[in-house]
Design a protein around this nucleic acid. Structure first.
Lengths: 343, 343
DNA sequence: CTCAGTTGCTGAACCGGTTAAGCGGCGATG
DNA sequence: CATCGCCGCTTAACCGGTTCAGCAACTGAG
């Protein structure tokens, strides 16, 4: 007990139990090949010794898993700080991983190329068993990459553009429709959507749905302007929109950070929310409830999405064919930032 | 080229080069034992084959490193979503890891016991070479644990309570002092600090510094109330404070999330900021600039802290003795949320 | 009583690297 | 000319697991 003990190995257990290495392995993995009595004895010794399998040794065997999955977030570092989405996602993923004792490798990259390179490295170095991909882009090269390596992958997004990869998608169109109908019912005629960058599949999908829904309720033109999810861009864009002579009476933002920034700008410019301007955020978070007035938002359970994606990935890693699934759709949470025009 | 290629190993390289496994290993690791000519040839073949070392195999060798470090965040999942601090920290850590090609294992736990268990598992399973510990507590059991396992660790915080572990600490006392003097100079007499939970070392350190600084400028009692870093708690606490008959004229929050929530409450209760109430946030983030008025904050470069901590950990893993270091201290960023009382 | 099948274990190969030890050939040295 | 030492490489062991083939002992059927 005095000095530093070497980490116990199955060989130590084997010696203590007076059996061979192989027998210990069978016993510990619940496989046939040892008597029930011997198994119990071996398990007892393993517990006493505080043994845990070396993940590296286990992974080395043919067909061995490393017991880790990867997630890469490719957003400018400064924008990322505030976005609650990813942390919620990570929490959800880890709930699932905790069950199997797997781990999450997280990487934050500055550009798309670095992200691709990171997947390549992870595969080549055998760092992960699979990955969850977020922020699917139009003609996303990651889809082909995952197939080519091959690296088990689940896409959070789609289903358009996910190709053969299993994906977990959300029917954003339905939510957009709900938002537009809601705002129209409040009497809004000039609704502008402040979206994320062009490249993302979900941006494009939402834009199309926004146009369709606007047509349904008889709005002349459904204008979508693009920003980059950062508070700065959200503020700048909002400032420009509110400076127009015919300024919009409702703004729909593609994330919570831009919506909060927009609210700040409205306040700064003396535009009353919701009296003169209604604001809707996408992806609810405590951030939306922190500000005053609290923001009406399209809420979905991001952690649950992460959990489900992790579950699907585990299946894919297990070699089973995984079917794409739809998540519960985002639901409109009306709060203080939306209402009819005052006066 | 047709079918699925097996991942190339050094054995494949050895065959192609007509040398032994060992020679290839020497060549790839830049060690003596092969001629410069042979080395070049081997490196060329390795590149052509797209070879990368299997991290699991490499880690298995005696003295081998797994090439990964761990970070555990022990905060309630819902609070965590919004807190920009951790994401900035992660970005910083990864800047450093990118240099050596190491990876980050991130875990989010619900309680302190789970965190301890995760370190144990990581060590036993040989998942990480070392860890960065945040949110140091008074009499933190993690300090003894890291020594006992032994698991290389760097503490972000301290230096009190970090014991023998190297730590990267910030002189919060100086910043607190700056804040108190600044507010006193603006004429504030009733300053209340909305702090994090009792258990944290930095909470205690700041409380002491707050009391000392208040005495310096002749404030009767320096009141600190405790919350849990969440927006909800920040809002609740602020509501209670502003409802007092002799309500505070300045509030200093221990994180940005509570400060933003506090601003929302002030607005909701019709208390003008900064006319009737000044607000100071700790740990600046874009969140503070998003709201209106933008929050005066104590800013420090969190990403740089993460980077430095990762650097220190790399040294510790390398077996060198690491000296604790001090970071640049937080600097007060005066913005719109602070000023003299109006009227 | 024989023979096949099962049970419970052992021994050894294997995964993909690292590294100590050994060894032939060469140039420099005495 | 013999010897020493170094260079450049090979061989083999090792890390800590998994897994297959083999084998002795026992069981049950014919």
């Amino acid at each position: 007990m005095g000095g530093l003990m070497r980490r116990p190995t199955i060989m130590d257990i084997a010696k203590a139990a007076g059996v061979s290495k192989g027998a210990v392995s069978y016993a510990l993995n619940g496989r046939p090949g040892v008597s029930e009595e011997t198994r119990k004895r071996i398990l007892g010794i393993a517990r006493d010794l505080g043994w845990a399998p070396s993940s590296t040794a286990r992974a080395l065997s043919p067909g061995g898993r490393v017991g880790a999955i990867g997630l890469i977030i490719d957003r400018p570092a400064h924008s990322l700080g505030v976005e609650p989405f990813f942390m919620q996602l990570v929490s959800g993923i880890e709930m699932e991983l905790a069950i199997t004792g797997s781990d999450l490798l997280l990487q934050v990259t500055e550009d798309h190329e670095a992200e691709i390179g990171a997947y390549r490295r992870w595969f080549a170095e055998r760092r992960v068993d699979g990955v969850i991909m977020v922020d699917l882009r139009v003609d996303d090269p990651r889809v082909a990459l995952a197939e080519a390596l091959p690296l088990p992958a689940v896409v959070l997004g789609g289903p358009h553009g996910a190709g053969p990869l299993p994906c977990l998608y959300t029917d954003d169109a339905a939510s957009i429709r709900e938002v537009v109908h809601y705002l129209a019912a409040l009497g809004h005629q000039r609704i502008v959507r402040v979206a994320g960058p062009h490249g993302f599949v979900h941006t494009r999908d939402r834009t199309r749905a926004f146009e369709a829904a606007s047509a349904e309720v008889g709005l002349a033109d459904a204008v979508t302007v693009h920003a980059d999810y950062t508070g700065e861009a959200g503020a700048r864009t909002t400032r420009r929109l509110l400076a127009r002579t015919e300024r919009p009476t409702a703004l729909v933002y593609d994330n919570d950070v831009m919506a909060v920034a927009g609210l700040g700008v409205a306040r700064e410019m003396g535009v009353d929310v919701p009296g003169q301007l209604s604001i809707v955020a996408w992806d609810d978070s405590t951030l939306c409830r922190l500000v005053h007035p609290p923001l009406t938002a399209v809420a979905r359970d991001v952690a649950a999405c992460g959990r489900e994606a992790a579950r699907m990935l585990a299946e894919a890693i297990g070699g089973r064919a995984v079917r794409s699934r739809e998540t519960a759709r985002g639901e409109l949470q009306p709060r203080g930032s939306t209402g009819p025009l005052a006066g």
